[in-house]
Nucleic acid binder design. Structure first.
Lengths: 208, 208
DNA sequence: CAAAATTAATCAATCGTTTGATTAATTTCC
DNA sequence: GGAAATTAATCAAACGATTGATTAATTTTG
């Protein structure tokens, strides 16, 4: 029995995601998607209505998966700093395990073309920021953190992670790291986590 | 005298840059560029050979302008921390005065399609990183900075700025900031500079 | 006038989508 | 249970529209 014939619908989604990540939405044709997935071109419209329908489906799936993971942390009975460290670890892992999609998300965020998508990504991002905001603000209020520009600290946490993913790897590190190599990815992940945890600890708990 | 008839060539470049920023390279047609610039379609190929020729021209101009500005700083006879603060200020100003182009650059960086462009952006970014690297490394060597993961600190500086520019503004700040409003832009710029200078100071010069 | 700039018209290629037909699977009915 | 009817999945071919590019003719300019 071959594993070949699984699900044409899913094959289209997989191929489309890969191509969208690599060459962008406008840069990917339905014919490429059809060829890459092994499906007939008509199947794209049959299942998803349109090319944009495929895109929306992909983004919705991914965003839903993203949102569900992080919320429990803020309810833990641990210190604000420990919460923040947990969020950093979770965030780094999530993004660096989905680098291609994360790039695509950022690309979409910098376009004005598909407002529906833009709003969806914005909302998802907004939720994450609010979560971190509440943790830091909580830490400030209970005196364990000093007074800081909370939104800027959030920009630093999220921005650092994004930059590591987006910037070319040979630029990031002096040696020849490669994020597609699982071994190197693990090393970079740990460096990122260590750095951000250290940075936030020093910055948020330093005296005066 | 009308300001109308200036330079068709430049009009094409201006229109193309605006459109490329708004809707991406693949998402912009030569006909749109022609209409927006008031030039005939054939003029695009007449002056630049091809659509990609226009794009390359725009990127080259911008990147050249970018690279020329920052190098003097490292030769100043000031402390490593002061150098770093100057770099941060210069970097924030440069990027936040060219948000549209910066978004486009990042978009291009996340695609695999135009290797020539990719390499060009990579090299420009690499130069900037090396500059910052030398400053921080210098500070560590002369004992004014503590031992840190230099490349990660750079990712934090650059990533923070990028995130402020790329992330939706209503998400960044609690109130309704708008980067296209010069007044709000100035406020955000100063917040960003203050934050990053404060952060690097605390982090790089903290004891232990 | 000659060179440069600009135009409208046109090109082949590709785009996303739709069509009508065919096969495979499922449900309905006697 | 088995023929008939219905639905779902798949296909090759073609659709009109748009793409980037080019032509040849015309206008502008020095």
């Amino acid at each position: 029995m071959k594993t070949e014939k699984v699900d044409k619908r899913q094959a289209i989604l997989d191929a489309a995601e890969k191509l969208f990540c690599e060459t962008g939405y406008e840069g990917t044709s339905t014919r490429q998607i059809a060829k890459e997935s092994g499906a007939n071109m008509a199947m794209i419209n049959y299942y998803f209505g349109s090319k944009e329908g495929v895109f929306v489906e992909i983004m919705n799936e991914r965003i839903a998966g993203f949102a569900s993971q992080l919320k429990i942390i803020n309810e833990d009975k641990i210190s604000a700093l420990e919460k923040l460290h947990k969020v950093i670890e979770g965030y780094v892992n999530r993004i660096m395990n989905n680098t291609a999609f994360h790039k695509m998300m950022h690309r979409e965020l910098s376009l004005t073309q598909r407002p529906e998508m833009y709003d969806k990504i914005k909302d998802a991002m907004s939720q994450n920021m609010q979560l971190i905001d509440r943790i830091i603000t909580g830490g400030i209020e209970d005196g364990s953190f000093k007074q800081v520009d909370v939104r800027m600290v959030i920009a630093t946490i999220m921005g650092t992670i994004s930059h590591i993913v987006i910037a070319p790897h040979k630029v990031m590190s002096c040696s020849n790291f490669d994020l597609s190599d699982p071994k190197d990815k693990k090393i970079i992940k740990e460096r990122a986590i260590t750095h951000l945890q250290d940075l936030t600890t020093v910055y948020l708990t330093s005296k005066k």
